[in-house]
């Protein structure tokens, strides 16, 4: 009888996270046919991100695929909150291969008592708004932008002249439509699945924050596997990484293509933004050191 493995995620089946879980399940099935029955639960069916984390830490769920929630485990992982850390997807891939991935894997397994199966992509966060194309920081001046996260991101958006707003994610569509806020920042698939593109006019590819996604297994579940199964899980988790980035890229391209009819998409002057928010790195480096940052900078080109 196959072992039932639930892979839950807080985001919908439009997300790259769902594609990653599918990739993983298919590849394991190919190598160990009939040994597992994977059941995917996207869209928060089994709980919000925080709940999934608690469940996997307690061993009440076998596997989850989540994103920024993992960063709350440890302040050092807050490095992914820093703005304009990566210039593009290739930069991310290079940094991850140059040791960043191994470093954060170890860190998460230490502090979270979970097994990290894979580190993939949740995506770059961009800005959508109803007013104008954002090309340089000055264009954000005075715009009410719905942000997620805490004081740090609030500060970053304030430095660029925007007036950051807090509205719950579920109310954001209505808030955009009604004009309670002028814009929002999120990963591309977030704008797509929430249909924000139907009410906003501009999607500016600011890429101000990059968030990885994490495929995690509970230690209880992982320890219950045979040595061969453990080996396959670990190997597959690593080997699908390139395919996972490709899937993210093609999903993003698809969503851009579909949203194009409803709004204008523009590139931005990254250097101007980097300059405007350079100060925001200081506090992190002071308290958490610059070992992660060094890897990332060395991988820049």
């Amino acid at each position: 009888k196959p072992i039932e493995v639930r892979i839950a995620s807080h985001v919908s089946s439009f997300s790259p996270l769902h594609a990653q879980s599918e990739l993983f399940a298919a590849e394991v099935e190919k190598r160990l046919p009939g040994q597992f029955e994977f059941k995917l639960f996207p869209g928060g069916q089994l709980g919000k991100e925080k709940d999934l984390m608690t469940n996997v830490q307690a061993g009440s769920l076998e596997m989850i695929n989540v994103a920024s929630g993992v960063m709350k485990l440890d302040k050092k992982l807050g490095v992914f909150d820093l703005p304009w850390l990566f210039s593009d997807r290739d930069h991310v891939k290079r940094a991850m291969k140059a040791g960043l991935e191994d470093a954060i894997r170890t860190r998460i397994e230490e502090v979270g008592s979970v097994k990290v199966i894979g580190v993939y992509e949740n995506g770059f966060r961009h800005v959508i708004n109803t007013e104008r194309a954002i090309g340089e920081p000055f264009d954000l001046e005075g715009l009410k932008i719905r942000i997620s996260g805490g004081k740090f991101r609030q500060g970053v958006f304030q430095q660029m002249g925007a007036t950051p707003q807090k509205v719950s994610w579920g109310e954001t569509f209505t808030a955009l439509q009604a004009g309670v806020v002028d814009g929002a920042e999120a990963a591309t698939y977030g704008f797509y699945e929430q249909k924000h593109f139907e009410v906003a006019k501009h999607l500016s590819l600011t890429g101000h924050v990059y968030t990885p996604s994490f495929l995690l297994a509970s230690t209880d579940f992982f320890d219950s596997l045979t040595d061969e199964q453990k080996k396959v899980f670990t190997e597959v988790g690593k080997e699908i990484t390139d395919a996972a980035y490709d899937a993210s890229a093609s999903l993003e391209a698809k969503y851009f293509e579909e949203m194009k009819g409803k709004l204008k998409i523009n590139d931005v002057d990254l250097d101007a933004f980097k300059k405007a928010t350079a100060k925001s790195y200081d506090t992190y480096v002071k308290s958490q050191g610059d070992d992660y940052l060094t890897i990332i900078r060395n991988a820049a080109k």
Partner: peptide, 13 residues
């Protein structure tokens, strides 16, 4: 055979 820790997690959430 579902872990009952899910009860408080879901009620809270």
């Amino acid at each position: 055979d579902i872990d009952l820790i899910m009860a408080p997690i879901q009620m809270f959430s």
